[in-house]
Design a protein around this nucleic acid. Structure first.
Length: 722
DNA sequence: TACTATTTAATTTTT
DNA sequence: TTAAATAGTA
């Protein structure tokens, strides 16, 4: 067997990982160190060289994208399609198990997956039902509580109130929530994992079957596993399974949603025979960028310890720009982006990163003004759109009448005269008789409701029954098409004015084509409709993707994880924004922010700009911040500070936003420019942030280093220009 | 029931 | 500032 193709492109450490003997292995893979390569080559090595059957290999990732990429790369490496390979997300694999063993898992065969939005609606409905004040019992907090418990593998009956009435209520709500889900055959994301874990835990024979089958367990982004995912893996590994886990403790940025880096340490305890391989050679960035990243992350306490290096060149220095305000910051970035583009570079290879989504606004405005095409990552995904979820809710209700989540969503959408009062009556009945809304509707329509409401409800029930009858023999896409028309959704959105409605109808039509293009994995023995609905929940699709055009990439640092760009801007690098105010006080929160910064820096291949603004308009008011402490953690020899443009030929962007206020052209008054450094007799040194008025009335806003920000009348202030 | 005024809060996000 | 959720009005 010629092993060259598998090994030739690997460095020593990578090779060690790929060819490691059949025992547990932990790979600490730094940013850009070839993590995916190691995973895929390991799979190829096992199959091609060790003669391991593809059947006995299981690979887990966190995102569908990563799973698809891994599958593709393994296929091209082995040069054969590996359909039977179990590669997927934790949720996807758990889902597959539950579909196969729905009976043992205590689920109805046609159970449906609800997404976070459905989950939140369900909780809100419960609160209303129980007449709990949702300003005191915040739905989001309850949702967070429930998911956090599930992520830890805990059911309501495992929890104790500890004498805390607040907690008691939360636990009770958790229990109620679960009851509603169980009654309706609904499974939320965390439930998929928890159920799959319980399925194995409670069915030793079944577990044994899978333990025998899956010998090699490969895990990507191991630092992002939560408790239940890790427990699931351990269960599957048992005594003889061989886990091959790859992660980077320094890139753990999802603690807030249950991820526990500690699993990296726990792994070594749980699998004492495990070896550790560190991948530290980086193939992505210049030495300067890596040194900066290393220097920043060094300030974190609890680490495995790792130092990225490259045998490449130092490259350009990191450029730091201190802007006057967020507009100036955006202007600067856009200027550089324009240069980049003018030099013949591909725009899609540049990215502007920020800490929070709201920061994209100013950038977008300026990009539009500059006529540069861009794409913002994140945002509403296809299957999350209202109209799509409406249509899917019809399909769900047709598939399972007891699905209260779907029922409530569409009972009066489009409006058919079933108002809040009527729904309330149904809810009361449903609660009193512990039955689904569907049954309640039937019962209530025949006795409790008065003529008009009863007719409306009966009409709705008939509509669903009829849709079920009419579509039972149709192909999936015909079913969808039928449902969107019969339900009245299309007509409903046609009436919506503006482009909104048109887009919605287009989306509904798009849903039909999505159904047309959908093929169920023949291995799975669920109905095609259920498969499609699960697919919609599990893979919500892309955010607004304009992939075809050559666009500048705008995204949060979180969503940049795993990506790389020759040109990167880290914008809004100010204390309070990044590190975020909410994490700044808590040491572990600050460390997570620092890891995020590490992620941000290591996205850059060649050129890295870091920008911050002295003044930033946030929540309607101006605020002032120091440059991010993370900037100070970068050795100054790696940095080239870009001084604000000394003499601007064009007038500095004037703040024409305020009405009534005449923005003067800075420079009209002698020496007054935005960004100009000045000295005041009493307040000391500062920077001009803003100016208004003319002649004797001219005033300037100065941010003093020690005295804060003040408006001063020029003719009295006696400012010295510096 | 739909439209408008008012209030409120404001990280990060995948499944 | 602004988006979203809620309350109030036609």
């Amino acid at each position: 067997m010629d092993v060259t193709p598998i090994l030739e492109s690997l460095n020593e450490a990578q090779r060690q990982a790929v060819t490691s003997p059949a025992k547990p292995l932990l790979v600490i893979a730094g940013a850009g160190s070839g993590k995916t390569r190691v995973l895929t080559h390991r799979a190829a090595w096992l199959i091609d060289v060790e003669g391991v059957s593809p059947q006995s290999l299981l690979a887990v990732t966190f995102t569908n994208k990563a799973a698809a990429e891994m599958r593709g790369r393994i296929e091209s490496l082995l040069n054969l399609p590996v359909n039977h390979l179990w590669i997927g997300t934790f949720h996807g694999l758990a889902h597959r198990l539950l579909r196969r063993h729905w009976n043992e898992a205590g689920l109805p065969q046609n159970f449906q997956i609800i997404d976070s939005d459905d989950q939140l609606r369900l909780i809100k409905r419960m609160l209303k039902n129980q007449e709990l004040d949702d300003s005191h019992w915040v739905p989001r907090e309850i949702q967070y509580f429930i998911n956090a418990q599930k992520d830890e593998g805990l059911r309501a009956h495992h929890l104790h109130d500890e004498g805390d009435p607040n907690r008691r209520q939360f636990i009770a709500l958790y229990a109620d929530y679960q009851e509603v889900c169980d009654r309706g055959g609904l499974v939320d994301f965390a439930e998929l994992l928890l159920r799959a874990h319980e399925l194995w835990r409670d069915n030793p024979a079944l577990l044994e079957h899978y333990q025998r089958r899956f010998q090699h367990l490969m895990v990507d982004e191991f630092q992002d596993t939560n408790a239940i995912q890790y427990a699931w893996l351990r269960l599957l590994a048992g005594e003889n399974g061989i886990p091959f886990v790859v992660g980077d403790d320094d890139q753990s940025i999802y603690r807030w949603r249950g991820a526990r880096v500690e699993h990296i340490f726990q792994f070594q305890k749980d699998f004492p025979s495990a070896s550790v391989v560190k991948l530290e050679q980086n193939y992505r960035s210049t030495a300067t960028i890596l040194n900066a990243a290393n220097a920043v992350i060094k300030n974190n306490g609890s680490r495995m310890g790792k130092n990225l290096w490259t045998d490449g060149a130092d490259g350009e220095p990191i450029r730091v720009y201190s802007a006057y305000n967020e507009r100036d910051e955006a202007d600067f970035i856009i200027g550089r982006l324009r240069d980049w583009s003018d030099q013949g570079n591909v725009r899609a290879e540049s990215a502007v990163l920020y800490r929070s989504n709201a920061q994209s606004r100013v950038l977008e405005e300026c990009l539009i003004n500059a006529g540069l095409p861009y794409r913002v990552y994140g945002g509403l995904r296809f299957f999350e759109r209202q109209e799509i979820k409406d249509a899917l809710a019809y399909m769900r209700l047709i598939s399972n009448r007891d699905d209260d989540s779907a029922f409530e969503r569409i009972v009066n959408r489009p409006t058919r005269g079933i108002g809040a009062r009527t729904v309330e009556t149904m809810r009361a009945y449903s609660r009193a008789n512990s039955c689904s809304m569907w049954r309640a509707a039937g019962a209530v329509a025949s006795d409790e409701l008065s003529g008009r409401a009863a007719t409306a409800v009966t009409g709705f029930l008939n509509l669903i029954e009829r849709a079920a009858r009419d579509t039972s023999n149709l192909d999936l896409h015909e079913q969808v098409d039928h449902v969107i028309h019969l339900s009245g959704l299309v007509d409903f959105f046609k009436k919506e004015k503006g482009e909104r409605g048109e887009t919605r109808i287009e989306n509904l039509e798009e849903l039909v084509s999505a159904a047309k293009g959908f093929t169920k994995d023949p291995v799975e023995e669920m109905s095609e409709v259920d498969a499609f609905l699960s697919h919609a929940a599990l893979e919500a699709g892309e955010g607004q993707a304009d992939a075809w055009e050559d666009c500048i990439q705008l995204m949060t640092m979180h969503s940049a994880k795993g990506l790389e760009f020759p040109l990167v801007f880290l914008s809004g690098m100010e204390d309070g924004l990044f590190p975020h105010q909410r994490s700044i006080a808590d040491p572990s929160g600050l460390e997570e922010e620092r890891r995020l910064c590490y992620v941000g820096i290591t996205r850059a291949k060649q050129t890295l700009y870091i920008t911050h603004a002295e003044q930033r308009r946030m929540h309607g008011t101006d605020s002032y911040a120091q440059a991010s402490r993370f900037i100070n953690e970068i050795p100054s020899e790696l940095i080239e500070e870009i001084r604000p443009r000394v003499q601007v030929s064009r007038p500095v962007q004037t703040m024409t936003r305020g009405r009534g206020r005449t923005a003067i052209r800075p420079g009209a008054e002698a020496g007054v420019r935005l960004g100009q450094r000045v000295r005041h007799g009493k307040f000391g040194d500062g920077v001009i942030l803003n100016c208004e008025g003319q002649g004797a009335h001219a005033r300037v806003e100065v941010n003093f280093e020690t005295a804060g920000t003040k408006w001063l009348v020029l003719s009295y202030a006696n400012l010295d220009l510096m």
